[in-house]
């Protein structure tokens, strides 16, 4: 179905790109180990072991809408932020460095700028997915070690520790808000970062992305989708919160804008 060149360049990016950044995946696993330790430590207050969802809700809960009040500190939730930073570091510089250093040889073999660009976009999506897969494996491993792998969220645990009433949320929806929505939001942000790293430079794109994420936490506005993955900001956690469909549509728009905007830029970009 696909030509060997298309398969070849995508395989090149998936193999080389993931391999070259393997240390970043391992280093980026820190927040998952962190959440395991924190959740385990806090579980002594409860009679049952936490389920799979408790870990993810704790990781992605974030904070409710923030209203600035002088005297009250604005804090970005550390654990949530570290996950965003880890993904930003994974995407960071690989595409630009790859093009600058040995990209000429790969791009002339790919014979198409579009193919090269979309292959990089696929690499970004695959990297983010792999990062989440690593996280899921770590948390599943933790659940196994504790002797309980359960996919039923504990109401008491979540009410007390996560300020979330899970009795109002169906199991399917929990999968969506804990895994799918954060994954999709992360892919959208990473694609934005990818485009920025070519238009500006990897480090400025990284700075812009971090700024955008912090501002998104501060302002809960549809223009700022950086905090879409925060569970406490969606409709299940608060009245008037972000709807799932709204989040999905925003993410798709951002992904398309980043991919096609980047392609339009890259099409005219001189490689020298």
């Amino acid at each position: 179905m696909w030509s060997s060149t298309r398969r070849g360049i995508i395989k090149y990016d998936l193999c080389q790109g993931l391999r070259a950044n393997m240390w970043k995946f391992l280093a980026g696993a820190v927040p998952f180990f962190g959440v395991v330790m924190i959740v385990q430590e806090r579980s002594v207050l409860f009679s049952t072991e936490p389920s799979f969802f408790e870990y993810f809700i704790y990781l992605f809960k974030g904070i409710r809408n923030y209203t600035p009040v002088p005297g009250q500190q604005f804090e970005v939730p550390i654990l949530w932020m570290i996950v965003q930073v880890s993904m930003a570091l994974i995407v960071y510089d690989y595409p630009v460095v790859n093009l600058e250093k040995y990209g000429i040889q790969t791009i002339i073999r790919a014979k198409s700028r579009a193919l090269w660009w979309f292959s990089k976009c696929i690499w970004v999506a695959a990297s983010v997915a792999l990062y989440y897969a690593v996280g899921i494996l770590i948390i599943l491993g933790a659940c196994m070690l504790m002797g309980k792998i359960s996919f039923i969220a504990d109401q008491e645990w979540n009410m007390v520790m996560n300020e979330l009433d899970v009795s109002l949320i169906a199991n399917k929806q929990l999968w969506l808000i804990c895994i799918c929505i954060p994954l999709m939001s992360s892919i959208a942000l990473s694609l934005l970062q990818l485009t920025g790293s070519f238009v500006l430079s990897p480090v400025y794109s990284f700075l812009l992305l971090l700024s955008y994420i912090v501002i998104s936490v501060y302002y809960n506005h549809s223009c700022f989708m950086g905090a879409n993955s925060m569970i406490l900001r969606n409709e299940f956690a608060m009245a008037g919160g972000n709807t799932l469909s709204g989040i999905v549509i925003t993410n798709i728009i951002v992904m398309c804008a980043a991919v096609f905007g980047g392609y339009i830029y890259f099409r005219r970009h001189d490689i020298y």
Binding site: P68, Q73, F74, E75, V76, M81, L207, V214, I215, Y218
Partner: peptide, 18 residues
């Protein structure tokens, strides 16, 4: 002194990069 604003938090998050 504006701990309630995002600017102070952001500035001190990205301080090492700057």
């Amino acid at each position: 002194a504006s701990g309630h604003t995002y600017q102070l938090t952001l500035y001190f998050i990205i301080l090492p990069v700057i």
